[in-house]
């Protein structure tokens, strides 16, 4: 089974409101994104809100276009492009946050998109805990995750938090263990 299918299948076994840590190797990055956005979210008829602090949203949009993934129900909260001064073109489904240190604004933009897309359930993808950890200390990041996940649970949304295998640390594992229901390792079978 491919990584894409495997991730989607595992997510499909989870109940509504679940929060999941997804351990990913860099080589499987786009397979995982496809598994979530194209397979899982489409099957469940979810709107997808993708928080990117790792690479600019435009790079993900370009990849999704190459993979011919329908973008009509996918929205981005991009907190890395402005700080990288790389906002050449603005995508209509992208909201920008000035910096990955503005964690409250990330929550506010997610809240806004949920309000705007009312009617359908949502999946929120946080890409990634490791890149947010570069810009924020553990205490504020833990507080952010706790608030975000519980707020999303109350809205019956799925939360998927990317954790990159190559950058695993004890702090990050502890932080995730407190808030998630399950940890999925993205791999093929």
């Amino acid at each position: 089974m491919s990584v894409t299918t495997n991730v989607a299948e595992k997510l499909l076994t989870l109940p509504e409101s679940s929060a999941v840590a997804l351990q990913i190797r860099a080589e499987h990055y786009f397979d995982v994104i496809r598994g979530i956005l194209d397979n899982f979210a489409v099957k469940k008829e979810l709107d997808s809100i993708y928080i990117t602090s790792t690479i600019p949203s435009q790079s993900i949009v370009n990849a999704l276009q190459v993979l011919e993934i329908d973008m009509s129900n996918i929205y981005f909260v991009d907190c890395i492009s402005q700080i990288m001064m790389s906002m050449a073109s603005k995508h209509e489904h992208t909201i920008y946050v000035e910096s990955p240190t503005m964690l409250e604004n990330l929550m506010l933009k997610v809240e806004y998109l949920i309000k705007r897309t009312e009617g359908k359930n949502d999946i929120i993808i946080l890409d990634s805990i490791n890149s947010l950890a570069i810009h924020n200390n553990t205490k504020i990041l833990s507080e952010f995750l706790h608030l975000l996940v519980n707020n999303l649970r109350a809205k019956k949304a799925y939360t998927v938090i990317f954790s990159m295998e190559e950058y695993r640390s004890e702090d990050i594992s502890n932080m995730l263990n407190i808030v998630v229901d399950e940890t999925i390792v993205a791999a093929g079978e």
């Binding site: 409250e104 809240e111 200390n137 504020i140």
Partner: peptide
């Protein structure tokens, strides 16, 4: 609280204290 002025109205979330 931290607030955002949006077309969906004023949105609020608690200010993170971060210890």
């Amino acid at each position: 609280y931290v607030l955002d002025l949006t077309s969906a109205g004023v949105l609020l979330v608690p200010l993170l204290k971060g210890g």
